[in-house]
Computed example of a mutant assay.
Amino acid sequence: MMQSTRRSDVTNLMEDNPCAVCGNRRELHTSWTAVNPGRRFVACPNDKCMDFAWFDPPMCERSVQINLGLLRMRNNMEKELLMRKKKEKMLWIALGMS
Rank of each mutant, 00 (worst) to 15 (best):
P57M: 11
P18A: 03
F52H: 14
S31N: 14
W54E: 11
V21M: 06
M50T: 12
R40Y: 00
F41L: 06
W54R: 12
N17E: 10
I66Y: 06
L13I: 03
G69T: 03
L28N: 11
C49K: 05
L81V: 05
S31E: 08
T30P: 00
R74C: 10
V64W: 00
L13H: 09
Q65H: 00
G23K: 03
F52A: 01
M83Y: 02
R25S: 07
A34L: 02
K48N: 15
N67M: 13
C22P: 07
P45W: 07
L28G: 08
Q65F: 02
L70K: 12
D16Q: 13
T33L: 01
R26A: 02
P58I: 04
E27N: 07
V42E: 09
P18E: 07
P37F: 05
R26P: 03
P18M: 10
D56P: 04
R72V: 04
C60M: 01
M73K: 11
L82N: 09
A53T: 12
V10T: 15
M50D: 10
N12F: 06
G69E: 07
W32K: 06
D47S: 15
P37R: 05
N17W: 09
N17T: 12
E15H: 03
F55C: 14
P37S: 09
M83K: 01
R74Y: 12
M73I: 07
L68P: 01
G69F: 01
N17Y: 06
E15N: 13
A43K: 10
R39N: 02
T33A: 01
E61N: 04
E61T: 11
W32S: 14
